[in-house]
């Protein structure tokens, strides 16, 4: 699913965001990435999405080598990824349902499937009653859940979620983590960055990556 060998990411200003990491994520893995702010969690997800490219090393995501020259293939690869962005990236002036469906419009789905997937995803995040609301009228927590619904409605092979529980209360956060876990049975890999270590203390059968100054150490929980 993801294979990283000696991957480093160095920004033009000299900052080293990721420092010589090795990593392997298998289908159906649930991976939590924790670490202090600026430790490289978001940069790691950006590498997996092809927003940034490794300065050194080799990175393969869903069988695709992540190189600068592979832009169009990486664009294609992204259709198999369900991203949840820290700042949500919802499209203003459109409704909740339109935002969720927008992530699927260029996939090979019929209109009925599109609507059904959007409805199911919104139901799973508890927002089916907000389907017709404009996204700018939502609270932060609701916006976050719409972003999650958009990611999971695509039924992706890989979910990359950057602080998906950051704006949620404990109950909603647990529900969202449960939702993500429900995809593992379908061999979807889920990588979640989070500060909320208290939520993953009780987690079992998952991998925990701890990042610090661009380096990582990881352990298997449960």
């Amino acid at each position: 699913m993801i294979k990283a060998k000696g991957v480093s990411l160095r920004f033009p200003n000299g900052t080293i965001a990721i420092n010589n990491i090795d990593l392997q994520v298998e289908p159906g893995d649930m991976v939590y990435v924790t670490g202090p702010s600026g430790s490289g969690k978001t940069s790691l997800l950006k590498l997996f999405m092809g927003i940034e490219y490794p300065t050194i090393g080799s990175l393969e995501v869903l069988g695709q080598q992540m190189d600068k020259g592979q832009t169009s293939r990486i664009r294609q690869l992204r259709t198999s990824i369900g991203p949840v962005f820290q700042e949500f990236k919802l499209i203003k002036g459109r409704t909740v349902a339109e935002n969720v469906m927008l992530g699927m419009r260029f996939l090979d789905l019929s209109q009925d499937q599109l609507k059904e997937n959007a409805h199911d995803a919104l139901a799973k995040v508890g927002l089916e009653h907000k389907a017709s609301s404009l996204v700018e009228n939502l609270s932060w927590g609701e916006s976050q859940r719409v972003a999650i619904a958009r990611a999971v409605a695509r039924k992706p092979l890989l979910i990359l979620a950057d602080e998906p529980t950051g704006n949620l209360d404990k109950d909603n956060a647990i529900n969202i983590l449960e939702l993500f876990k429900s995809f593992i049975d379908q061999k979807t890999s889920v990588i979640i960055t989070t500060h909320a270590t208290h939520l993953i203390d009780a987690e079992k059968h998952c991998k925990l990556i701890q990042m610090n100054k661009g380096s990582l150490s990881w352990e298997r929980l449960g």
């Binding site: 664009r75 992204r78 259709t79 198999s80 990824i81 991203p83 990236k89 260029f106």
Partner: peptide, 16 residues
């Protein structure tokens, strides 16, 4: 441009 960037991140083709 924000919307366009988001669509690119979601994998939308340029023509779309």
């Amino acid at each position: 441009k924000e919307q366009i960037y988001t669509l690119r991140l979601l994998g939308a083709p340029e023509l779309f």
